[in-house]
């Protein structure tokens, strides 16, 4: 009694499971592009395989498992449809041994129809997805390009900062350096004049600035400018540098031999700011790197 009860209980359980699985299967029909499966299907006759597929064929079928089942075979199929609709998987099969597929129901080896259905997730009436909206092209280059560009910019910035700091430092150093004597102040100017790297305006100012300085220093303010020049040229202290400058600045081929130290000797004990004529834009800048 108890044994019979157990058999009936098992049968009801199997039916319930089968019904549940059927309802679930019906409810979960595969959609376009999603794989659907048919498993444990026993097909009579010799073994079947998937026919070669045409590129335009909307159904892709794959046999995932084959196992002998008496004189027949048991198959697991997996299929993917590219269009919604009803398909017969039998249309995509052929006998492996090359015998034709028989569909006559009276034949024991006849291959039964294997209907499947593929649904669409699109709304009714829409058969194709929307045409994508035109969008702007992505920015030039990709991440790597941007990374390289950022690296270059960073290096350039670094170089600028280093160069700028160096220049500033040099300018500050130059600004800090102040000649203590008139000789120190005159030396770079005279050297530039000798090298021919002093600007025309600077040369003119250097020459006549010195004349003005000596005129004041020797109290020649009331002499005529011509007589002043003549007296200064013959003066023991003023004469040598003035005459040398005159030669360097005015002769077509200036003399080459110069004793700059001796020429600047009279200016060694004079303060650097003794010639206010030099405190102009033309001569106040450093001249060690002056250009013509």
């Amino acid at each position: 009694m108890s044994r019979r009860f157990n058999t009936w209980r098992g049968m009801w359980l199997c039916i319930a499971i089968a019904l549940t699985s059927l309802s679930t299967a019906a409810a979960q029909l595969p959609s376009v592009g999603m794989p659907g499966r048919v498993t444990e299907l026993v097909l009579p006759g010799s073994e079947v395989e998937v026919r070669a597929r045409d590129a335009k064929d909307p159904l892709v079928l794959r046999i995932t498992r084959v196992a002998p089942h008496g004189s027949a075979f048991r198959y697991d199929f997996e299929y993917v449809a590219l269009e919604a609709g009803k398909y017969d998987l039998r249309d995509a099969l052929r006998r492996r041994d090359g015998t034709p597929i028989v569909t006559d129901p009276g034949d024991p080896n006849a291959l039964p129809s294997i209907p499947v259905e593929v649904t669409s997730v699109l709304a009714p009436g829409i058969v194709k997805p929307h045409v994508p909206e035109p969008q702007a092209l992505p920015r030039f280059g990709a991440y790597r390009t941007w990374l390289v560009a950022a690296g270059v910019v960073w290096l350039a910035g670094l170089a600028l900062v280093l160069f700028g700091l160096r220049k500033k430092h040099a300018a500050m150093a130059a600004a800090r350096w102040k000649p203590r004597t008139l000789a120190e102040r005159l030396r770079p100017l005279v050297e530039s004049a000798l090298a021919g790297t002093l600007e025309r305006e600077q040369r003119a100012q250097l020459e006549l600035g010195l004349v003005a300085f000596w005129r004041r220093k020797l109290a020649m303010e009331h002499e005529s400018p011509v007589r002043t020049m003549s007296l200064l040229r013959d003066h023991a202290q003023a004469g040598p540098l003035l005459k040398s400058l005159e030669a360097w600045l005015h002769m077509p081929t200036p003399p080459a031999d110069v004793d700059l130290k001796a020429l600047l000797e009279p200016y060694r004990d004079m303060p650097a700011d003794a010639i206010p004529e030099f405190d102009t834009a033309a001569l106040s800048a450093p001249h060690s790197s002056g250009g013509r």
Partner: peptide, 18 residues
């Protein structure tokens, strides 16, 4: 004219110091 000559060497437009 003498003043102009004395002013040479100084900044343009500046009269001679004396």
């Amino acid at each position: 004219v003498a003043e102009l000559l004395r002013s040479l060497g100084g900044a343009a437009g500046e009269p001679a110091k004396n």
